[in-house]
């Protein structure tokens, strides 16, 4: 058990770090989208647009905070906080580098780290569902319904796909899982599982081509149509921090975590996470959006059976070998 002040410092540091990464993830997304789309992206605020996130933050803070007259005021205020809290809390159990002696690079180290993480992540849907419902709008309601259905159906396939990793690693502690990949990353042993997991995390974080809950051209802003100012920013932050969490998880589970030659572990970890995040952006720049019912049937009829099959085969091979 670490001293309370160290935990406090780590927690505050983690939140600040995540906010900073979020800010620049957004900038890089806009920049890369710009490059994909034959344009420049933000380049007016600071050199190479580097101050853009701060300009955005200032703008959002000073926006009028509007609560629709018919909204359920308490839940309307609470919902974005749930989303952001859940996104931030998820990172608590993710270590970014191996423990060196008594010092640990994560905040908490529960035995069932991965299970706790999944449990926290599945709370995120409350933020969206409640926000959409409390706004009392038709577009928001439809958006909330969509995202609830989507999150529930993709969580199942996601959990199923990573059981294969757990069997190979023989532990649900993230440190142990990463340690088990010292020689070969699990993506080599579990290619199908890794693919399913990747698809599921894209769907879980509501990113293109699965960005239905907020499908702008259909449902305007989806569940956050009515939100403005800081509350809107909270949803936005939650979405991007979720992306970071999921990318980190993918790195730990399939890409060998911080293992890598020459460079220090933290750098390897950061590089891998950045590569996964770039993949998110690339997908967004390239693919059209799925249709809602297809998304559901894809999740239930393709991904889930495939994940189950993957699990069976993995288990059989581990038992027989």
């Amino acid at each position: 058990m670490e001293a309370w002040w160290l935990l406090l410092v780590k927690s505050v540091g983690l939140v600040l770090l995540l906010f900073l990464i979020f800010a620049y993830l957004m900038l890089f997304e806009r920049k890369f989208l710009g490059f994909f789309q034959l344009r420049h992206g933000p380049n007016r605020t600071g050199p190479w647009g580097l101050l853009q996130p701060f300009a955005d933050a200032v703008k959002l803070v000073f926006k009028e905070d509007i609560i629709p007259a018919s909204a359920d005021r308490l839940i309307y205020r609470l919902a974005p906080m749930i989303s952001l809290f859940v996104a931030l809390a998820a990172y608590v159990v993710i270590p970014v580098a191996p423990s060196s002696g008594s010092f640990r690079w994560g905040i908490a180290d529960p035995n069932a780290g991965l299970l706790l993480l999944l449990a926290i992540l599945s709370l995120g849907v409350y933020g969206i569902a409640l926000g959409g419902w409390a706004s009392q709008g038709k577009y928001t309601l439809l958006g909330a319904l969509r995202s609830t259905a989507q999150a529930i159906s993709y969580e199942l396939a996601m959990a199923m796909s990573l059981v294969g990793v757990l069997i190979l690693a023989g532990s649900v502690r993230l440190d142990d899982i990463v340690a088990a990949q010292a020689r070969v990353p699990f993506i080599v042993l579990q290619p199908v599982g890794a693919l399913i997991f990747l698809i599921c995390i894209v769907a879980e974080t509501n990113r293109a081509p699965f960005d239905l809950p907020e499908g702008e051209t259909e449902l305007v802003g989806g569940y956050h149509t009515e939100y403005s100012g800081l509350r809107f920013a909270m949803y936005y932050m939650a979405e991007y921090i979720n992306m970071i969490v999921m990318a980190s998880l993918l790195t730990h589970l399939y890409l060998g975590g911080w293992h890598g030659p020459l460079l220090p572990p933290v750098v390897w970890f950061a590089l891998k996470v950045a590569a996964v995040l770039f993949l998110f952006i690339w997908l967004r720049a390239t693919l059209p959006r799925f249709r809602y019912d297809r998304l559901m049937s894809f999740g239930w009829k393709v991904l889930l059976p495939l994940a189950a099959l993957n699990l069976l085969v993995t288990a059989a091979v581990v038992v027989l070998a």
Partner: peptide, 16 residues
């Protein structure tokens, strides 16, 4: 049309 169906980049390519 591509933008409406979520294929964002096609929009920019077409306009270019």
């Amino acid at each position: 049309t591509a933008l409406d169906l979520g294929a964002q980049s096609v929009y920019f390519y077409a306009f270019e």
